[in-house]
Design a protein around this nucleic acid. Structure first.
Lengths: 368, 368
DNA sequence: TTGAAAGCGCTACCAT
DNA sequence: ATGGTAGCGCTTTCAA
């Protein structure tokens, strides 16, 4: 009997080694270790093993040691599907952005992920391509996956589409873009201030005919527009509706939108001598349009963007931009998310970070 | 009895409406609908409901209709944790890249996600920050989550770190970066050809002293270097080791690496009259260094990057770059991943796409 | 300090 | 065509 066992084992081992030798994985990998396996080996119950794993206190030091040691050896990893089913938590958060290739949102994703990582949380990310319907679909998809928290930089024109989420028990955190009087947590910057900073800066550079390129979809764009108008009004510089370009079509490609919008603005008389763009990709497109028209930046037209995206300084003309502290936003959102897992659902919290202007060549001393 | 029931329902409804009215979510959302609920309502068994949901054939048209109708009404969503536990699949794939803010990789992620989306798959994404140890950690993390497929743009200096993955049953797809004689699927471009295209192009522009900036970590960089050397040798243009800069430290910030490397290269005599950078962020850094030194692009130094990243044309000087068909890579990888879910594990497949050169101002007619 | 039992929601297998 | 039974691997509750 023993001989037979040995010989079978030997054959199996030989086969395995042969496969490894040829650089191939074994045809049948050993199935993952389960608590049951460890329990049986150590003559304990599954419950005890589970308790040790979760750091429960009513376990003797001796037992704990043995279990942990064995887990280490076998490289035990809990089956999260099983755990999810039992606990009702997925240890997963959803993050939806209009465009994950836009450096602002990918940077955001990176920092959120970093903030929740230590708590064993992973991010399921989706891109809505700046389309409200796709966003709704993705929200449903993530909700079906039972994400524990949903973080959304929303593309909904109004909060109606998010209403159904708010009605479920999954906590919802809006980031960057928000809706007034909508019962969800919010992490972002003061967009009106963003608009003020940018416009004020352009005025200080001597610009007088300041245009704005925004998007009709995004709340951020509206806030920035408000700040822009406010400062213009205060300066007596006059607000001209024709200097404001806000497209409503889904622009997950801000650069193209910015290019087209700037082309139109440049055709106006008097021609604008500055443009404030509601995000950096849009500003890139605008800069391209300006240079193509044979005009100089900032001498003929000064440009200010927003987001202070990673590659801003490598653009045609280094881009002045409003920094939104992307890293800060991500971290705050991540921390808030973790907090919401345990705390009872309190009233919506709003976290606002301060935007700051980073001056670069695209605007500095435009008129001098 | 009926009266009582009605009154309870009415009270509950009123409470719910009151809450909605105030714009707040109901304090306790109704728990998700389960197959059990639908089965009970319709006087069927859970099994039948399950079969309908999964499009099984042995179901009467009548039953199917009723079940689907009810599911629609109740907006039924399966509990994926339960399904995972029962099937052993997570309906999730892992994607690890050196840097998800790098537009090349975020674009890749976007297309992979798009390709697997219709199959009900979501992507768990992680960034390894170009560090081998972090990558290993993330791999373990994703494996613990039982992702069904793992797609990795690896930062390992050698495949040793991936060996343990290859030995498990989770299919592994390497993307962009690969290792010779390593038993994993691969989707990428022919990197030697990339190097040839870039170098050949620069020679054709009249450049003779062509430098290379790469990374010691990435297989891609080595392949491109090989192509570069090959062409230089063939042209009798001579290969000068001092013109090759490959840093080994983790450069998830290619732009800084490129900047520093270019600074050194510019100090050489004779000074290079062209530089081929193994990716676009590196090229951005290099361009900055060149312009800062008061030199012109391409007249003094021509630049070619690789990746043809979304914003390449908006840079200081529109950047000539080797396009790797990012969208194609993503789609191919996604399709392969789906295929691997069902097919038995066959021998590693290699999918190579053709790179193409996109000429822009940073290199064109450099010497004329 | 330990563990038996029950159950999370779904699917696989095999009867009927 | 339909459904009963038996899990999947883990946590929760409560008894020992």
């Amino acid at each position: 009997m023993l001989a037979v066992t040995v010989s079978i084992t030997a054959v199996a081992l030989a086969r395995k080694l042969a496969l490894l030798w040829r650089g191939m994985p074994p045809s049948e990998a050993s199935p993952p270790v389960r608590m049951k396996d460890i329990a049986r080996e150590l003559g304990l119950s599954v419950v005890t093993v589970s308790k040790v794993f979760r750091g429960h206190v009513d376990i003797s030091e001796e037992t704990r040691r043995r279990v942990l040691a064995r887990m280490e050896q076998l490289n035990y990893r809990p089956n999260l599907a099983a755990r999810s089913l039992a606990t009702g938590r997925s240890y997963t958060m959803g993050f939806i952005a209009p465009d994950l290739v836009h450096p602002f949102f990918s940077e955001l994703a990176k920092h959120i992920a970093g903030a929740v990582r230590r708590n064993g949380y992973h991010l399921l990310m989706s891109s809505s391509q700046e389309e409200a319907s796709l966003e709704k679909e993705e929200i449903e998809h993530l909700l079906a996956r039972r994400v524990d928290v949903l973080i959304v930089a929303s593309s909904q024109p109004d909060p109606g589409g998010l209403r159904s989420v708010a009605e479920r028990k999954t906590p919802l955190i809006l980031i960057d873009r928000r809706y007034d009087r909508f019962p969800a947590h919010f992490v972002g910057v003061d967009d009106v201030l963003v608009g003020r900073l940018a416009t004020q800066h352009l005025l200080e550079q001597g610009c007088r005919l300041i245009a704005y390129i925004g998007s009709a979809n995004a709340s951020t764009s509206l806030g920035r527009l408000a700040g822009y108008r406010e400062v213009l009004a205060g300066a007596g510089a006059g607000y001209r509706p024709e200097y404001v370009a806000t497209r409503s079509h889904g622009d997950d490609v801000g650069d193209e939108t910015g290019y087209a919008a700037m082309k139109s603005l440049l055709a106006l008389r008097p021609r604008p001598d500055a443009v404030f763009c509601h995000n950096d990709p849009t500003a890139m497109g605008a800069m391209k349009a300006i240079l193509e028209s044979g005009l100089r930046i900032p001498a003929d037209v000064a440009v200010v963007g927003c987001g202070n995206v990673r590659y801003s300084e490598f653009l045609m003309v280094p881009l002045t931009s409003i920094d939104q502290d992307c890293a800060g936003l991500g971290k705050k959102a991540g921390r808030l998310a973790i907090e919401l897992l345990n705390r009872p659902v309190k009233r919506p919290r709003t976290i606002l970070l301060q935007p700051t202007l980073i001056a670069r060549a695209s605007s500095v001393a435009a008129r001098f």
